[in-house]
Amino acid sequence: MDDHFSRDVLISIFSRLGVKQLCQLKCLSKEWNYTISSPHFKEQHRDQSKKRPTLSLISYSGTDRSFRSRLVHLSSVNSSNYEVVHKYENIAEIEWGYIVWRSGLDLLCFYQEGYVGQIYICNPITKKTLTLPVLSDFAGQACLGYVSSTNEYKVVVSFEGTVENYEGFEDFLAFNILTLKLEEEGTSVVGSWRDLLLSCTSTHYKGTRHQPIHINGYIYWLAIGKDNTYSSDHILEMNMENEEVKTLCVPNGISSFGFTHLAEINGHLCYVQNKRNGQMLNIWMLKDHESEAWCLEYNLEMVHERAYIFIIIGYLPRNNESGDILIMSETRGLFSYETDTKKLKELKSLNTKQYEWCALFYESFFSIGLPGN
């Protein structure tokens, strides 16, 4: 076997292993260390990891009596039987805040609102946490996304405001954007916050609502119509590479009643609506991005529950043809919907655990740290 072929085989095998195992293998051989440390391998490993995300349970514990500082813990769940298989204790220490939980990435993002807004980025595997520059008057919605063409992450925060001009007052929608880039030597370089302002004069929206979502290099928000009603919802889409923003229409025939949110299922943008009685979950999927063609892909009867709000956590693939849609109930915890058998199951083994929230997560080598650390 020639060297080129053997290295390809080695990369194929190693790319299916976890980060912890690979760090151990780097110590066993100079050749293995060179292979695992190469940018080509890290890209291959990331692509493989994205195909096998895990459900992770997020929990907190206080470090002082005031609970102003909290330790973050993560438990990884086996996707086949939904049993906890790994526990990562004390992966980060943060001030009180919320998790940006629908990122579906290899890093966790936490944010704290207020006059002095604070955002934290954490790699649970390496237990490295990066505190981003302070964002003043942070009362928006944060989202973390990845730009594959430049191998960098961007944190985007949206908020709405009003400015005075010669005609009176004008609404505007603003975005704060910060770039986190991985350098060749394995350290991360943090940029400063940049402003992106959108005038709402010629548009039919005035702000955003609910948690935004990142899918394949794009961030999506539900937009609020100028009349302050949700019946005129549109979807805002930001291309993270060039930071251009445009609007998408929501599916036709959507009722103005019930709770709606955006979700990702198997790489597709989905518009999700809870019926007012809480026992029906309709999921529209964007089938064609160019024509904005939507399809009512799933219509779930939530017969196990009498709650008004269900939230799609994400999609766990089991094979090339099927997977589980993970659903969070506000009162009874997690459910899974098997897309092949069309069965809805309550995940009782997980609902007995103590956790704050859950997220989809996959491992990566992205280094959280500054030069010299």
Rank of each mutant, 00 (worst) to 15 (best):
H289W: 06
H204P: 01
K128A: 15
T129R: 06
I36L: 10
H210W: 03
S59H: 14
S364M: 12
E184W: 06
P39A: 08
I99Q: 01
L347G: 08
K127D: 10
E95S: 05
W193R: 02
C143T: 02
S188P: 01
N228S: 14
Y120R: 02
R68I: 08
V272R: 04
N252F: 10
Y82K: 05
T203I: 13
H4D: 15
P317N: 05
E241R: 04
F335G: 01
K30Q: 09
P124Y: 05
A307E: 14
G372H: 15
S75K: 05
K30F: 11
S12W: 15
Y146I: 03
L55N: 04
G207H: 00
I13P: 13
S80G: 02
F259P: 04
V84I: 15
T352G: 05
N282D: 13
C27Y: 13
E297W: 05
I215Q: 02
S38R: 12
Y308N: 15
T208C: 07
V155I: 09
K226M: 08
T341K: 14
I309P: 08
H268F: 08
T331Q: 09
I215D: 03
V19Y: 07
E83Y: 07
E241Y: 06
G267T: 09
N228L: 08
N242G: 01
L180K: 02
G104A: 02
